[in-house]
Design a protein around this nucleic acid. Structure first.
Lengths: 147, 147
DNA sequence: GAAACTAGTCATACAGTCGAACTATATTGG
DNA sequence: CCAATATAGTTCGACTGTATGACTAGTTTC
């Protein structure tokens, strides 16, 4: 029967589908040299650049892993490292124009998913879903206030 | 302002937190020889054993990857491979007693998370959340009817 | 029973990951 | 000012995760 499945499993299933869809959209757009792990880091880069340590923390990996992922993104031309004017030790990881041009592709797929979900749930449930998840973020997302 | 964050991001944040919490609970229970990738596969094993191909499909990895993950779980003593009586080519991957003894730990943490979420959202929103996500599963989870 | 298919494995190559050790810059307390 | 300490980032080494391709061994189909 499984009348009351664990909510954690349910959000996991939904999240997996979203990630799969966005990656597939990128592939269709001709992007085949970014991996999922790299995309997860790239997605956290702010408009004015973000420090590697911050990226590592937000993506929940170590600095070493973030270094390796950014290395590959840099080689592929999607990000660049520039000195941080406020701290001689630090460098800011910034998206290049090449990466910025892909943002609309991701945004469009996200919008498509939202439309499909709303069509399936109806506007009332969709609103409630968004409201609940947003509230939940207060206790599940330590980085909720960035960008 | 970010008044209307993408719902896909919201479910992702929630899912990440759930995964993190369950893994942390396992660690506290003394389990330090299972990785996240291995746990994701193990979590899909049914009560009577599951074929490797099915595990691979459900965990969204290739058969080769699933083989490697099951290899490590087997070495660590959490699963065993037994012949599938209905198909001479196939083998069923089954949880051992050692793994089964950990299920209550995971279940307890899941229940704790649910209680916390319900306390934060209130019973009405929690019910709506579960309802919406369950409905969503119809269009996001091709494996929804297993176990 | 030959052809086509399916379950699983092996081999190989590379990406992801972390712990430890290191360099360079920044901060802090005298 | 400077020695001690802390922080940002990298490099190194070892291992896990991952996919492609090639393979073996059973199964299904006609």
């Amino acid at each position: 029967m499984a009348s009351e499945p664990f909510v954690g499993l349910l959000v996991f299933v939904a999240a997996r589908e979203v990630e799969r869809r966005v990656v597939a959209a990128m592939r269709r757009a001709g992007v085949d040299d970014i991996t999922l792990a790299q995309a997860r880091v790239a997605a956290r880069i702010g408009p004015h650049g973000t420090r590697l340590t911050d990226l590592a923390e937000q993506a929940q990996v170590t600095k070493q892993t973030a270094t390796a992922l950014v290395d590959r993104l840099e080689i592929a031309g999607y990000v660049e490292r520039v000195p941080d004017p406020t701290d001689g030790r630090a460098r800011l990881v910034r998206l290049t124009d090449k990466a910025a041009s892909l943002l609309p592709v991701a945004r469009a797929e996200e919008a498509r998913i939202e439309r499909e979900w709303e069509a399936h749930l109806g506007p009332r449930r969709m609103r409630a879903l968004r409201e609940s998840l947003t509230l939940l973020r207060e206790i599940t997302d330590p980085y909720r206030d960035d960008a």
